[in-house]
């Protein structure tokens, strides 16, 4: 992933920047130009809370090359209190414990290294609460 492509996504990857539609109130993450629910174009910027609940999950045993060293690792769709949903890895726990309903905090972590230069690419991962 060339660095401009990575740099463009910083608002959502680093800051969890999302958008609340002024028409229907729906939250989209990452922010978009057109609301997927009502096609509204007026938005208020908001930042998702760094916590949420697992909607569904898996444990990846056969991963892409870049992630295979980490396998098996848990992944989940997490919903934040604002209603935004995001796909994250869930770490610092037994992968098999990551099941629907689990409460997680969202922490800023290294996600992957890109290309021959090994650019460090960051984002959020889930960590079980308590």
């Amino acid at each position: 992933m060339p660095s401009p492509r990575y740099w463009r996504e910083k608002a959502n990857r680093f800051h969890l920047e999302a958008a609340r539609c002024q028409g229907c109130g729906g939250v989209t993450f990452p922010a978009r130009t057109i609301c997927p629910a009502c096609r509204g174009t007026e938005f208020e910027t908001l930042y998702l809370s760094r916590k949420g609940k697992v909607v569904t999950s898996t444990v990846v045993h056969v991963g892409p090359n870049e992630f295979q060293m980490e396998a098996p690792y848990a992944m989940a769709v997490v919903e934040t209190p604002e209603g935004g949903r995001l796909m994250v890895q869930v770490v610092d726990c037994e992968p098999s414990d990551v099941l629907p309903g689990l409460e997680v905090s969202l922490e800023f972590r290294l996600i992957r290294r890109e290309g021959h230069g090994g650019i460090l690419c960051y984002g959020h991962k889930g960590v079980p609460v308590g």
Partner: peptide, 30 residues
């Protein structure tokens, strides 16, 4: 694995390490 994953959302799904079997596994759990 990487080619098939290009049928998923690169920026919000594949970036974080999900695979195609992984997406269907999440559908299965749900």
């Amino acid at each position: 694995t990487n080619v098939l994953a290009s049928a998923a959302d690169q920026e919000t799904e594949v970036y974080h390490g999900i695979t195609f079997p992984g997406l269907y596994a999440m559908i299965a759990r749900a």
